[in-house]
């Protein structure tokens, strides 16, 4: 599948934003961070800025972005529509939490309710994002049970790295955040490694013979193409990354997204001076960002659509 930059940036940026929102809400709820209005302002501000940037970037993928509001209507059948609805709904508890955190509670329990619902809504949104891909039986690498859980796990992993950086910048104790970060990164790594094994092992069940119904006469091989220049179907669905490049990129993604941030989080668990801690957390964030962009690019580039069998024969 063609790796569209708008979708890559959208899913990674808003993913990290929701992860940070979940991290902040949980940290406040569990008393790991103090109810410092400045931390709330910059923390939740950063989370919502990331989410909003991602959502706005996603409209760049549309042929008619001015009609984007229409995408909120078909939540009964469409995961994309559900994601849009869930993303907008999430702003409500996030606002309740943010206003309570920054300006103080208007109602008793505002922070608790806002935080709990923020976590829930953000998780639902992330699940919907994953299901957009996981619900397509036409793409072997996406039609996998791990796809949606990985979207959540990577959002938590990147969000926790951001939370650690935020706490380091504010000079708050970051032990708990760093430990949560190690756990989220480990979970993401395990799931992603299992996913890569699963897609390598997944059988190519759809053949050119079944796609044309001509298998009864033998193997089906393309003779004359239907057009001389690549059409939309080939540009969008026919994109393919070379196998050896994919292997290399998987390794790069694993190192940048999981190994470096985990090492950084472990270093942060040792005591250090504030500037060193901020530097480590910043490096960790940059590495995770580059890693998750590579991972998401590969998620598209490695995915093969069944329609390619019409153009190149064989199986997909």
């Amino acid at each position: 599948m063609h790796p569209a930059y708008s979708v890559i940036i959208f899913t990674t940026t808003s993913g990290a934003g929701y992860g940070l929102l979940i991290g902040l809400a949980l940290a406040l709820r569990l008393g790991i961070v103090p109810p410092d209005p400045l931390l709330g302002f910059f923390g939740l501000g950063a989370a919502l800025a990331l989410v909003t940037t991602g959502l706005l970037t996603s409209t760049a993928h549309l042929g008619r972005p001015e009609r984007a509001w229409r995408a909120l209507s078909q939540w009964r059948s469409s995961w994309l529509s559900r994601e849009g609805v869930a993303a907008i709904v999430t702003y409500v508890p996030a606002a309740v939490l943010g206003l309570g955190w920054v300006f103080g509670e208007v109602m008793p329990g505002q922070l608790a309710v806002g935080a709990s619902l923020s976590v829930l809504c953000a998780l639902v949104t992330l699940w919907c994002t994953g299901m957009i891909y996981a619900s397509l039986p036409t793409i072997r690498a996406w039609d996998q049970p791990l796809v949606a859980p990985i979207y959540i796990a990577l959002a938590l992993a990147t969000g926790s790295v951001l939370l650690t950086l935020l706490l380091a910048a504010f000079g708050y104790p970051l032990r708990a955040a760093a430990m949560a970060s190690v756990a989220a990164l480990a979970l993401g790594w395990i799931l992603k490694a299992r996913y890569w094994m699963a897609i390598d092992a997944a059988p190519r069940t759809h053949t050119a013979e079944a796609a044309t119904g001509l298998g009864r006469f033998g193997t089906v091989r393309p003779l004359d193409p239907p057009h001389t220049q690549s059409n939309y179907v080939m540009r969008e669905m026919g994109y393919q990354v070379a196998r050896r490049h994919a292997t290399k990129l998987r390794r790069i993604a694993a190192v940048l997204l999981f190994a470096v941030p985990m090492l950084a989080a472990l270093l942060l668990l040792l005591d250090g001076s504030a500037p060193i801690q901020i530097a480590i957390a910043a490096v960790s964030t940059l590495s995770a960002a580059a890693g998750v962009l590579t991972e998401r690019w590969l998620f598209f580039a490695e995915a093969e659509h069944v329609v390619v069998v019409y153009y190149r024969g064989g199986s997909a």
């Binding site: 599948m1 008619r64 179907v233 669905m237 329609v307």
Partner: peptide, 27 residues
């Protein structure tokens, strides 16, 4: 009049039946 050109339908079709109109921005 209501297609937003998100292209998801073309991903869902195994037969490659839908083509995106790059100028019109719709499927």
């Amino acid at each position: 009049d209501t297609c937003i050109g998100c292209k998801l339908c073309s991903w869902a079709c195994p037969y490659g039946a839908r083509e995106y109109d790059y100028d019109d921005g719709t499927m």
